[in-house]
Design a protein around this nucleic acid. Structure first.
Lengths: 332, 332
DNA sequence: TGGTCGGGTTGAAACGTTTCACACGCATGG
DNA sequence: CCATGCGTGTGAAACGTTTCAACCCGACCA
């Protein structure tokens, strides 16, 4: 593999000059610059980032670790993060923890070894071992889609309690008295907060609330939850799901069983992914500014790790928004 | 940042010994091993992969460059690739080229600088400049979801011509005489091949075929294409879309305009993503073994770059499968 | 003419690993 | 008692960059 030395030899200059041509072209004379560049082209030299990084002590890569890439919400977050990083000449690598603590740990360990510039983390569990070990490595990180006290780290999140309340209020006002909440694993703060928001509206109002915990926040688990819902009696008249994938799964179960939505079962999802509007019955959902979440998180991280070296952490919280569609629109 | 030297000093051993503890624990005595390990733990030492890689000359990372991470098909491909790579102790980084040649080039350049072990590439254009430049870098690569002559590179693909024919035959047999094909950018071989397959069935059979080119293979473009479809007269009675996202977009346009599917417009998609079955009208689609595609591609790459160093390239071609659902099931 | 300046180039150190030839000490066998 | 070998540990080289002090040389100024 051709290195800077080969280029130097062929061009009849020193290694340092080649390096200058590549990194600070303005300090080298036009003549040599041209000569060196043509040798680089001819030999097909591409610099070795690992050597560069070893010397520099820091990498030009930012990592994003998300809960589930199968969820279009996180794909949007990733796009936002890339926008912001590219604008600063950094690259992003995205890792999918699949909501598994072990995978999350292993990715974090890998990223620490890579000495990435920083990590945008949508954590499975903010208090677990995985994170504790990572913190020791000293790699800067920012929480995405998960708020934490600002003394611990910066974070960008959406107010999940408010989102849950939004959904709850919507259903309560439509007159539903038996509501189900389909949630994911309780380790996920998003799930807990959305439930809390829902309860804040529903509790004490005479509405009965049933909670169904799905094994994962995905489509298949939603279908399972839907099946359980069908077996209940009396059956709830409305269901709020912790995300759209679950909601789509529930919806499919309903349609499959011939239950009319929203007449016999109203459904509210969360995230407002693009598919929500394209479902069998377009889904009412709580919208989160996914792309902005990613962009802001990246910006926060870069501000912290930049040369300006701002000290303190920040917490940014966005506000969710209810998008009403057919799945809760009672046609009379 | 604590390095191997610090560990060595604290443990009262040489650098080499620390390295041995980490990489070949069996050659060092139990006593020193224990001592060194405890120092590592105490100091929170994590090795620097860039130094490691510089020395080794090769990285422990495999890259996957896909056309669109917003397409669940590619997320599945990525999962398959990760399965295979993790099984061999390698990590995968996924890059989303967004079907843009410039982004693809920039990712490939970045990956070459990183000296990744190899690249799994779902290329925008197999003959373009982007690829030519990358080839010079000498980084091994395998095409995913795109067949090429085996003398150029290994590849894993699905027979798109057969897939197109599958869809065409299905529609022709259902008696459709005016069929539309909604496709993506013509640079994409997938689009061209699926069209070719469709034509092989339809041409000369008296069926009229209209081709609508969408700007991208995504949901929004599908909606646009759907709108155009609505404006045609006579309107086709069936539409085959180059992927499911387009098909879902078209479907939404139909539903929005009150056109009944499949009675007034039959729709066939491609990929059979999970959402296809959950759509307003469950979508008939041509299924591809996405996960297997990713897994096989990774295995091929690792076989080529492994120590065994098999020389030649291979081309693996999978066969697609038609999944019939409501969107083409004529209810009489 | 001598001194200073500055543009252009060089050579070497440093980054943190891994690896490998070698050294040391001890037991074993001749 | 010497040779051999084995189990441990060491020290230094090498990986490909970047950076920085030093150097060279021609021009300009006093």
């Amino acid at each position: 593999m051709v290195g800077i030395k080969d280029v130097a030899k062929h061009a009849g200059v020193s290694i340092g000059t080649v390096s200058n041509v590549v990194n600070r072209p303005e300090v080298v004379s036009a003549a040599t610059r041209k000569r060196v560049l043509s040798v680089i082209e001819e030999l097909g030299y591409v610099r070795d980032e690992s050597a560069r990084q070893l010397r520099a002590g820091r990498s030009r890569i930012v990592a994003l670790v998300v809960l589930d890439l199968g969820n279009p919400f996180f794909v949007e977050v990733a796009r936002g993060a890339e926008e912001a990083a590219h604008a600063r000449g950094l690259n992003v690598i995205t890792c999918d923890s699949g909501q598994r603590t072990d995978l999350e740990s292993s990715y974090l360990a890998m990223l620490a070894e890579q000495r990435v510039r920083g990590v945008l983390l949508s954590p499975v569990d903010t208090s677990g071992e995985a994170l504790k070990a990572f913190r020791r490595s000293g790699v800067p990180y920012v929480f995405v889609d998960r708020g934490v006290p600002a003394d611990q780290a910066s974070s960008v999140s959406v107010d999940d309690v408010a989102g849950g309340a939004l959904a709850g209020r919507h259903l309560a006002e439509a007159g539903h008295r038996r509501i189900a909440f389909v949630t994911g694993p309780a380790v996920l703060a998003q799930c807990r907060d959305r439930e809390a928001g829902l309860r804040s509206v529903v509790d004490g109002s005479g509405v009965s609330l049933t909670v169904l915990e799905a094994t994962a926040l995905d489509f298949a688990s939603g279908r399972d939850a839907g099946a359980r819902l069908l077996g209940m009696s009396p059956r709830p008249t409305a269901v709020f799901c912790a995300n759209d994938l679950l909601a789509l799964g529930v919806l499919q179960a309903m349609v499959g069983a011939g239950i009319r939505v929203p007449e016999e079962m109203a459904i509210v999802g969360y995230d407002d992914i693009e598919f929500a509007g394209a479902a069998a019955v377009p889904l009412t959902s709580v919208r989160q500014p996914a792309r902005r979440l990613g962009r802001t998180a990246a910006e926060l991280l870069l501000a912290e790790t930049g040369d300006g070296a701002a000290a303190g952490h920040q917490g940014v919280v966005f506000t969710p928004e209810l998008v009403v569609r057919e799945s809760t629109r009672t046609r009379r």
